[in-house]
Nucleic acid binder design. Structure first.
Lengths: 200, 200
DNA sequence: AATATGAGGTGACAAATGTCATATTGTCAG
DNA sequence: CTGACAATATGACATTTGTCACCTCATATT
């Protein structure tokens, strides 16, 4: 019997997946969580065979949970299950050593199959991802990301200087560099691009 | 037997809801769609008793579909099912005369109950919404919304003038007014605010 | 000791943005 | 017809943004 844990903040999907996977004769859902923190704690305690993990969750996101599980040498296998084919996410998940990365874009039957494969030691990745998308790394340094996040909220250069203790010239230099790296024409477009790619 | 139609662009949730509701002894899922356009066509043809309708779908969103159904005097009842408690969405749904507005934040059992109530002529709304949130109307005119949408993508004033056939002064006046209405300090912050509230 | 390298900074400049007061024009109720 | 209104436009202005060349200083590297 495969022991499953599901972490997913959209309760409707969580309960739907729970009910349906429980109907499979060889699986049992032993726990659920709607936040990353909750999930981490429960997984360490319950040691499920496989965790289905959403990325965008409150408190701690699914990638952080996956990374932390590896750090604590958990035996549970992780399948990331997300809406987003964002290259940044995928790459980070692979680096964290997850056993699968699926998009919420397939049928559930596929999901059950995938779980069985992972239990048997295989790795599974949505084909949409592995093909072209992989090598698009986040070109932004951590500092640039931090600055762009603030700019995306509409903060002015001056406000950013105050939050980050930098001079206004420096902030403008950073933003100029960000705009150049992303091929944007102004900070707003840069923010729009980076958000779409999952880089900030 | 209640005849259901489900429109939802996240395939995993679509198929999960489909399977689970089909298990209910008094319901039958007679159709599914993953885009608004598809949904509209199928609903007009199949005339289901109840449609579950996501808002954010490609081609035509769920609210537009609901409005169009009313316009064509469809007999099918509509329950909006969405992640977002955005006041703008809710208000528009109510105006369109939908029979229910639920958040994807509850269990499926609740959903089945809600469907039965709607069939019996009741209306159901997630309590989170009706309480406080209602009276926050979208302060932006359609034109302002259109302009702000473009600005949110990082388009410059000049690019906006070309798309909308307005002079640059007019565009700047509009943006100035938008910024004022939203209490923002620049177009980027205005976009950020409007997006969060579901106004653009 | 000599030299990269990287984080942060200056100053100058052109362009874009935001504000405001003031037109022009067309539509529509009275 | 007239006056109110909405949509669009102008011009003038102060600020903010984006670009670029060059500076400083502390660590690493050789």
């Amino acid at each position: 019997m495969i022991r499953l844990f599901i972490a997913e903040d959209q309760r409707m999907l969580l309960s739907a997946l729970g009910s349906l996977l429980d109907l499979e004769t060889d699986m049992k859902v032993i726990g659920q969580a709607t936040s990353g923190e909750e999930a981490l704690k429960a997984i360490l305690e319950l040691e499920p065979d496989v965790c289905l993990m959403d990325i965008e969750m409150p408190v701690m996101n699914g990638l952080e949970v996956a990374e932390e599980l590896v750090r604590r040498s958990s035996v549970s296998k992780v399948i990331i299950l997300t809406t987003f084919a964002r290259p940044g996410y995928f790459e980070r998940a692979v680096k964290a050593g997850v056993q699968g990365y699926l998009l919420k874009d397939g049928e559930i039957d596929e999901l059950a199959d995938a779980i069985r494969k992972v239990v048997n030691g295989k790795r599974i990745f949505s084909p949409e991802l592995t093909v072209n998308v992989f090598r698009e790394e986040n070109p932004l340094t951590p500092k640039e990301q931090e600055i762009l996040k603030l700019a995306a909220l509409g903060k002015t250069t001056k406000e950013i200087t105050k939050e980050l203790y930098l001079s206004s010239g420096t902030v403008r230099n950073y933003i100029s560099e960000i705009i150049h790296k992303l091929g944007a024409k102004n900070r707003t477009e840069a923010a729009s691009i980076a958000e779409k790619k999952g880089w900030i």
